[in-house]
Design a protein around this nucleic acid. Structure first.
Lengths: 351, 351
DNA sequence: CCTCGTTTTTGAATCGTTTCATTAGTACGA
DNA sequence: TCGTACTAATGAAACGATTCAAAAACGAGG
């Protein structure tokens, strides 16, 4: 009920100086066993808990790293967050998580908040153009790394995945399995990732004489949006024989519409491939082929780059680009009806 | 690059005392317009950002509330988190999120961390028995509210949902639609929520002469676990005509197995109902009936109770219990084949 | 010009920890 | 006994914001 015990209270109780208590906490070797024991007992008795605010104040910085993502509801980001948390834990730091929800002003608020908290550094999956803010942060000694967004290596550090290559991989796979009339389902082309995936797909189709790629705009990247695209396809009657969706949620929606509502067979009538390889993809009605992004490596590397930024004397940046990986499952595979996931497992990209 | 500007630097730059700068920041009315302007300009020039650690140290507590959930991957918890964040924001507080992942030691670590941060209070969806820690926290002036877990009102504050009532509602609905051979699919009965839902279902079945309820243990509460239960049911050949799953993920798994792999018709051959009403339920292959829990109200009320706890002189606690709500969709409804979600929308419970 | 009342501004004290230059204590050899 | 070379313990200073009693500035009225 009353105010909690401070290091001074502990020192009194144990009959030592405050510095000694601090040493017990931070440099146990410097303290004689007898004293250490007395102090620890006092800590026990008083229920002393370090005040982190005071530590930070003295240290000049916190032991936290800020991370701002576009949408915590998206399993892809959740996976990246988890990897970053693990990597940060190894450094003895914790991650403060912010969800911008694709909203630039919320993003800006989080940046402000994290600055007040004196985070050690900032990882950000940017909504809009944040280069100005990042420059400002750097002036104030806060290193920043862009995540899932390629940036000019001479000015910023970034970790990203080659979306063009991913798009190529997906379309190439459909073509290799004999499909020729492809369709790309994807949200607003203003989103960089989606535009790049489309571009990669177009490149693959361009290499294959006689193959076509149709563009199907979707309203967002949700399961529901995918369903309505699927319904629309069936209504108009003219079906592609291979569909590449800009993410797995869309693909699952399309699958539901085609396979269940309209009784089409996947992959016999239409092959389907998604992007992200979320957990749900493997356990979908028809296990979904997908493009796996190395979420583990993304999160881990982001932290590594942050450390490099922080330690570098002169401002040297790096742009790490990972290559995504094709995961083949039933939705594009041979016509079997056994369940279960196929595809390679090893997680990781290359530096 | 160099250390960031302090309030003292601003004071020098503006030619005023530190107290004045503080006043500009916290009590602008007390400062004359001329001075205010000078100070604000200095802040601008130096790029001054408040140091939150110093504020907290002085204030004795932070402006954050700790929240520990069992699994951030579960949409149910994500929804509660969001509601709590919104409610906290109205109080000018931020939420620190911790994910215990059903692991008691991780839970304990987060409690320690939040104590060091001097959070204003703690909301916790407990893994094991945390009453000891909560008592300890209270002694140290940290109010705590249990979330999604009913507690002895004389000792703790809690917000929960009446899982017995939810189970009753689900089973009653299956019985009302003419099913008699019911099955309950659910993970380990050691989990309170699951045991309560089962108990409610048993109560409903007991009221209906001739109705039976079979218990099907599942290995966890995931989509995959649901699939294997479904496969098992088909293999052994003896099907119930109504299935109640302890959560939506399980239900979706069962649905995939029965409807897709084994070509059974839902709801004609088997009716299916889940629990939680996650977003995905409405957009499943066959839109899934479910029991909606008032996630909004849960999160909001948790914060309210926390405030009550904090302000109360004498230790007065409250246990708020919400009543869940039946959402009827196609998986238990009349045999139509139109897609789209049915069911009531208004979110919320009652106090 | 002085007084009184009000509005502004001041600056030392405070929060709890870490740091580090000093001091105290101990053991050993000369 | 004294000096030396340690190890252990001390306690004042610093971190940066807020608070608040006291001082200063200002305006109005006499």
């Amino acid at each position: 009920m009353n105010r909690s015990a401070s290091i001074k209270d502990v020192a009194n109780q144990a009959g030592v100086a405050v510095g000694t208590v601090s040493n017990v906490l931070n440099y146990p070797d410097r303290v004689s066993p007898r004293t250490k024991e007395r102090v620890q007992q006092a800590i026990e008795e008083l229920g002393f808990v370090r005040n982190d605010a005071a530590r930070q104040l003295r240290a000049g910085h916190s032991r936290t790293i800020g991370l701002i993502v576009l949408d915590v509801g998206n399993p892809f980001f959740t996976a990246v967050v988890r990897a970053a948390e693990d990597a940060a834990a190894l450094l003895g730091s914790a991650v403060l998580l912010g969800d911008s929800g694709h909203d630039a002003s919320r993003e800006s608020n989080y940046i402000d908040l994290f600055q007040e908290q004196r985070v050690q550094g900032l990882l950000i999956v940017p909504v809009g153009d944040v280069t100005g803010r990042i420059d400002q942060l750097r002036e104030r000694g806060v290193p920043t790394v862009l995540v899932d967004r390629l940036a000019d290596e001479s000015k910023y550090s970034s970790v990203s995945v080659d979306d063009d290559a991913g798009g190529y991989l997906a379309a190439r796979h459909l073509l290799d399995s004999g499909r020729r009339r492809l369709a790309f389902v994807g949200g607003p082309a203003s989103i960089r990732q989606i535009a790049d995936r489309l571009q990669g797909a177009q490149r693959a189709v361009g290499e294959e004489p006689g193959a076509t790629l149709e563009l199907l705009d979707s309203d967002g990247q949700t399961v529901l949006a995918g369903r309505s695209v699927g319904d629309m396809l069936v209504e108009r009657g003219q079906l592609p024989d291979g569909i590449f969706c800009a993410n797995d949620l869309l693909a699952l929606g399309v699958m539901q519409s085609l396979a269940m509502t309209h009784r089409l067979r996947i992959p016999e009538d239409v092959a389907l491939i998604g992007y992200d390889d979320i957990d749900f993809a493997a356990s979908a009605v028809v296990p979904l082929s997908s493009i796996r992004q190395p979420t583990q490596a993304l999160g881990r590397t982001a932290i590594e780059l942050l450390v490099e930024e922080a330690e570098a004397e002169s401002p040297i940046h790096r742009a790490v680009i990972f290559t995504p990986e094709l995961v083949v499952r039933q939705s594009t595979g041979a016509a079997r009806s056994t369940a279960g996931a196929a595809g390679s497992s090893p997680q990781g990209g290359r530096l």
